[in-house]
Computed example of a mutant assay.
Amino acid sequence: MSGTLNNASLKTGRSFDLGKMNLRQLWVAYLTYPTILLYFALIVACIAVATHFFAGWGATLVSIVAVILVYPLVWYLLHRYVLHGRVLYKMKWTASLWKRIHFDHHQDPHLLDVLFGAPVTTLPTIAIITCPIGYLIGGIGASATAFGTGVTITCIYEFFHCIQHLNYKPRSAWIQRMKARHVLHHFHDEDGNFGITSFVVDRLFGSYYKDAKARPRSPTVFNLGYDIKEAKIYPWVMDLTGSPPRDRPDGARPDAKAARGTRHAA
């Protein structure tokens, strides 16, 4: 994607294909994306609330550390057992939710619009997890700190998630390894490597794998088990999509070789 076309996308709202963007274009798209701008505004608001109801440096720091420790575990559990679960698409009233929050992303991993979680689902989830932790530690001020920390981590996760789908080879060996593991999750076997920036929890739960040789390729890596057979029984996601589920994302086809090469970056 040329710089001119990418700028046009910013103005017209057209989708971004991360498989055709470079790092500079990602920064522009990321820093001007409405969801990210909303997150930034909420972080500033949390700082204001935390300052007004200051809980003390001890409670503030403990709240930050607690969220940093809890967040990867919560993300792992939600990613593995909810986003990759098969319950949501089997109910008509949750089918559109599952389609938006994860199915679309696996159908086309390079599409920026569905890579970011929708604020209507991400923010309540972050609040439910972080606010009670902070409140128990230090009341309203610490609760605001905890929520702000959760939103900040989400921004970091989202950026590195973009990097993992970007047509770009990171210079950092750590980011290369991180990207390689996530590419395996999307292009080899979805039942593993659920982390984004860290795979410590994957190791603890036995879902970590290093390369494609570690396990056979999953036939459901792009459709998460929602194949033609399932779509005939539970048609709501397919009806919303307007076409049958694909066994390979069209948007990723030109970059398939590059994706396979990234797997061996480690």
Score class of each variant (00 low, 15 high):
A50N: 05
A173T: 11
I163T: 08
R253F: 01
A29M: 13
Y71E: 12
G117W: 01
P109C: 04
N7R: 15
R181M: 09
Q176C: 02
F194A: 05
F54N: 14
K213C: 10
Y157N: 14
P235S: 01
D227N: 15
L37M: 13
L38A: 12
S198G: 08
K257H: 09
I163K: 01
L31K: 02
L240G: 10
V28L: 13
T121V: 12
R248C: 11
L184M: 10
K232F: 01
M91G: 09
L31W: 15
K210A: 07
T60I: 07
H185F: 11
S9Q: 08
L136F: 14
A265Y: 05
W93N: 13
V237M: 09
P124Q: 07
H106D: 00
I175E: 00
V49T: 08
V70W: 10
K213P: 11
Y81T: 08
R100A: 12
L111Y: 10
H102T: 11
E190R: 12
R14K: 13
H182P: 08
W27M: 12
L77T: 11
H165P: 05
Q25C: 02
R246D: 13
K99N: 15
Q164H: 11
H188L: 00
Y39I: 01
V82K: 04
Y226A: 13
V44Q: 02
V62G: 01
L136T: 11
Y226G: 13
F222G: 09
T35M: 11
F54L: 06
Q164K: 01
F222C: 13
A146F: 10
S243L: 06
R217Y: 02
L78T: 08
G242R: 02
G195P: 04
P254W: 04
L123F: 05
L77K: 10
A252P: 00
Y81C: 01
N193C: 13
G13N: 09
D247P: 00
P119D: 07
A41R: 00
W174Y: 09
I129S: 05
H165R: 07
A256Y: 12
F116M: 08
A8V: 15
Q107K: 01
L23Q: 01
H110R: 09
Y208G: 08
T152W: 07
H79C: 07
V120T: 12
D250W: 15
F187M: 11
A66C: 08
R203W: 14
T35Y: 12
I101S: 10
G195C: 03
L112W: 03
I47S: 02
E230R: 05
A256D: 14
Y209G: 01
G206K: 06
P170V: 02
H186W: 06
D108R: 06
I128Y: 01
F16C: 00
